[in-house]
Design a binder for these strands. Structure first.
Length: 117
DNA sequence: AGTATGACTCATT
DNA sequence: AAATGAGCCATAC
């Protein structure tokens, strides 16, 4: 986990989330909770979602399609430019998506807590 | 300034 | 096994 700024408000949280997401290898995915856990804010998975929402405004771009909920469902697809974009991007990376859910999710799962340990 | 609402997850019914 | 409640906390209204 990266050090927290000395400010009382921790605005580096979003930055940390984006850094982690950018390190997800192509064809792999992770979850909001895994990222939250890796950053030490285990119970704030919702904030990771907010970080993704804001990720569209920052550069370099963040592969937000590689972040799904803990069931492997594309819960954030509705927030992309078009609802089908997230699924398309994942399919293009070799991930099979059926009914808004990643097939063989556990095989594609990339856990930052383990991989970035 | 108070309430509501999530791209979530876990514990308890 | 499915539904419900509860933390979480930044934004929106």
């Amino acid at each position: 986990m990266l050090p927290v700024a000395d400010d009382s408000k921790n605005y580096s949280f979003f930055q940390d989330v984006w850094d982690v997401v950018r390190q997800i290898p192509k064809g792999r995915v992770t979850t909001y909770g895994a990222i939250a856990t890796y950053l030490g804010t285990k119970s704030s998975a919702r904030m990771v979602g907010w970080a993704m929402n804001a990720s569209f405004t920052v550069r370099p771009k963040v592969p937000a399609q590689r972040v799904v909920n803990r069931n492997g469902m594309l819960s954030g697809k509705a927030h992309f430019a078009t609802p089908m974009l997230m699924e398309e991007l994942l399919q293009k990376e070799g991930i099979t998506v059926e009914q808004d859910k990643i097939v063989n999710f556990s095989q594609h799962f990339w856990d930052p807590v383990i991989e970035l340990a």
